[in-house]
Design a protein around this nucleic acid. Sequence first.
DNA 1: TTTATATATCAATATATCTTGATATTTCGC
DNA 2: GCGAAATATCAAGATATATTGATATATAAA
Lengths: 102, 102
Amino acid sequence: MELFLQTVGSIYDETRVKILKFINKNGELCVCDIENSFEMIQSRISRHLKILKDGGFLKVERRGTWAYYSIRSPLDEFRLSVLKEIDLLDIEIPKLKKGCAL
Amino acid sequence: MELFLQTVGSIYDETRVKILKFINKNGELCVCDIENSFEMIQSRISRHLKILKDGGFLKVERRGTWAYYSIRSPLDEFRLSVLKEIDLLDIEIPKLKKGCAL
DNA sequence: TTTATATATCAATATATCTTGATATTTCGC
DNA sequence: GCGAAATATCAAGATATATTGATATATAAA
């Protein structure tokens, strides 16, 4: 139950739904790219990414100073259906703006 | 987005997940049956049922003084996958105890 | 019409979650 | 080692949601 609620809770937020859709569309991205594209402060993005990761939707890979987030694979059937549903949602997601200084 | 979040929010609660699983297992039930089976006060059950209904999972039919809740049909693919996932959850749900005085 | 049963809704409080700004951690290059 | 960039975490305030108890509504029976 706890795991299920964590999974559900991770998508019970407008920002996280958009981030998930954004990563699903654009593929692997680092935090600063998402931060820049969404024009939200870093701590906020970082927190949401962690929640989506803990919810089982994302994985992280650290390379140097960067943390690259991408859709976890393989996804179980339930999370796949969530992703599919989110993909069908008619919502605006920002254009990808690369944001890292280096 | 709003509708999606409402749907997701309706299952982001332990009690509601159990109620949904309970109705899915036992079929159409009136509020007092659920109230009695779960041993929760009426206002609490009533509220959760409303949220599950507004989330698109349940329908109500009033017959006399009773309100009978059941799984809405047909369900779209996403809500079906939710129901399936909840059905797979290894959680305890109470035994059905008919609760109406009449 | 009065009373009882079933259900819904409201107000107040308690609890959880989100956002922001500040700070901590990690890694790289000098 | 030191400073800068990228990321993570924490504390405080704001907002949302859950629970309870009280009350409102609706139906049926006497």
